[in-house]
């Protein structure tokens, strides 16, 4: 006998994410979910971004990409509240789930911030599958990773609203085909904004920050 069920396997996460989204909405907080493979430059990009947008955009960070407190320490130096998520000491979780964000947010004064940035676990596969209640997802892709990551991880690049193509300061030293990389991104996600940046030199940051500001403004209206 067959018993019909028809339920999403990630139902529990989806419901919790909606709950988060409502909470953040009520508090007027814009939530940005930042994803990439390990080492693409999420932390470095965020540190440099935060220094530029503070104090105009009051921000806080939840960081999940850790096995030490290095990232949290680096981020805290920019003067924003940082909540570090304690995952397994030997790298347990491959993504942040909605209930983890809900718990971490308890440690933040949501009334005092406009922007909550979540640095997700370094992984181009799993985080794309898990809604955390964010308003916007972006992916950081470094030129050191080769050109074809977007076609290898299409879900990630479909799900994100923009790509930060990082470490452009390394281009002169690499045999990197920038045009091919851009083509791959747009093959998977036509019209996706791509910001070429160097978190090292801060080259290219103005357009990225203007875009972020625009996204935040769009929500608050």
């Amino acid at each position: 006998m067959e018993i019909k069920i028809v339920r999403k396997v990630l139902d529990v996460n989806a419901k919790m994410a909606e709950q988060n989204r409502k909470l953040f909405g009520d508090k007027g907080v814009f939530v940005l979910n930042v994803m990439s493979s390990p080492g693409a430059g999420k932390t470095e990009t965020l540190v440099k971004t935060l220094v530029r947008i503070m104090p105009d955009i009051k921000s806080a960070v939840i960081v999940g990409d850790i096995c030490t407190s290095h990232d949290a320490d680096r981020l805290a130096q920019s003067g924003v509240p940082v909540v570090q998520i304690n995952t397994e000491p030997f790298g347990g979780d491959c993504h942040l789930a909605a209930h983890v964000i809900e718990k971490a947010a308890l440690d933040l004064d949501l009334d005092a911030i406009d922007l909550l940035i979540v640095e997700n676990v370094g992984n181009l596969v799993c985080p794309a599958e898990f809604d955390i209640g964010e308003d916007c997802r972006i992916v950081v892709l470094s030129v050191a990773e080769g050109e074809d990551k977007p076609v290898k991880y299409p879900l990630m690049f479909r799900e994100c609203a923009a790509t930060l193509l990082n470490k452009t300061d390394l281009l002169p030293h690499l045999d990197y085909d920038l045009e091919a990389a851009l083509n791959y991104i747009h093959q998977v996600h036509p019209d996706m904004p791509v910001f070429q940046i160097s978190a090292r030199t801060e080259e290219g940051f103005d357009p990225w920050i203007a875009w972020l500001q625009k996204m935040i403004d769009k929500k608050s209206k």
Partner: peptide, 19 residues
């Protein structure tokens, strides 16, 4: 055109059990 709707392919659903 790049203006697409993805109609299927994101599923992760349990549809039934057989007893």
């Amino acid at each position: 055109s790049g203006a697409l709707d993805i109609l299927s392919g994101r599923e992760l659903d349990i549809s039934s059990i057989e007893i």
